[in-house]
């Protein structure tokens, strides 16, 4: 037949590969056999293909860490799903965590970097909204709206996680939460409020100092000035007092400066903080 003459090596290879993969015992079609018989180079090439496809392929094992990370991710995804259902049912504005929920989320952060959550949050949200994905899909207007809605959702989800981390009994996890929430400090009042609460009530000086460092990045300090002055009235640790003073007096905001100095007359500062206050006053006169 005329078809015999157009048998090509790639067809024979494709057949061979299929045979090997499917373990089919059918003999090779005659035209292919005939083509091979007259072509020594093809036979050699096919022999190589057979060797390559049938030689033993050793598989390397990944570390146990991979499984741990996967199950933590899965666990967290289940938590997020439960929380989503919970929130939808209750339609509650306040985020309330049931016991074990923050634990599940925070445990996920212990060995893995924080970015994983962001990754999950974004991906999880995408899976929720975007039905078909394709490499070359161009987002329609409708999809853009969906993505925008998703971004808001992810932001609130991220805030929710940050807040839960900041409430974790482990100081390490709270430090992680502060680092995690740093990028949201100027956008999310809820994060600011939680950090202020941490500053006022946390047991760990390290955590308070980290919270202060994060709060110091807020562009406009005026709305939280009162809360910071309150901290000066209750906080006894000189390191924390000094950092709060620096924030208030060196913010560049004249109103905050005046408000602080006026109120400080009634505040009993530590010797160390008083010293710094003296220095700061001198700086302000420069």
């Amino acid at each position: 037949m005329s078809k015999e003459s157009i048998v090509q090596l790639e067809d024979i290879i494709a057949w061979k590969v299929q045979q090997i993969q499917n373990k089919v015992n059918e003999p090779m079609p005659l035209p292919m056999q005939q083509a091979l018989e007259v072509n020594n180079d093809w036979r050699q090439e096919l022999s190589f293909v057979e060797h390559f496809y049938t030689s033993q392929a050793d598989e390397q094992r990944p570390s146990a860490q991979l499984s741990t990370r996967f199950y933590q991710m899965l666990n967290s995804a289940q938590v997020v799903q439960e929380q989503r259902v919970h929130n939808t049912k209750n339609n509650a504005g306040e985020v309330r965590f049931q016991p074990g929920i923050w634990q599940a989320i925070s445990s996920w952060f212990m060995p893995a970097p924080v970015y994983q959550f962001a990754m999950l949050a974004v991906c999880f949200g995408l899976g929720w909204y975007l039905k078909p994905i394709d490499n070359n899909t161009v987002a329609t207007n409708h999809e853009s709206q969906q993505i925008s809605a998703l971004q808001n959702e992810v932001k609130s989800l991220t805030t929710m996680v940050a807040v839960s981390m900041l409430q974790n009994p482990s100081a390490t996890e709270r430090l992680n939460g502060i680092a995690y929430s740093a990028s949201l400090i100027d956008q999310e009042p809820q994060i600011q409020q939680t950090l202020l609460k941490v500053l006022a009530t946390d047991d760990s000086t390290s955590v308070k100092l980290a919270a202060l460092k994060s709060l110091a990045e807020i562009q406009n300090i005026a709305p939280i000035a009162d809360a910071l002055i309150d901290v000066l009235n209750t906080e006894r640790n000189p390191l924390v007092q000094i950092n709060v003073l620096q924030m208030l007096l060196l913010s560049g905001n004249e109103d905050v400066y005046l408000k602080t100095t006026n109120q400080l007359t009634n505040t009993e500062l530590s010797t160390e903080a008083s010293k710094i206050l003296e220095q700061l006053s001198q700086v302000n006169q420069i």
Partner: peptide, 13 residues
């Protein structure tokens, strides 16, 4: 890890 995270995320597709 990332592949499985995406599988979960894109499960509906």
């Amino acid at each position: 890890q990332e592949t499985f995270t995406k599988i979960l995320a894109y499960r509906q597709s």
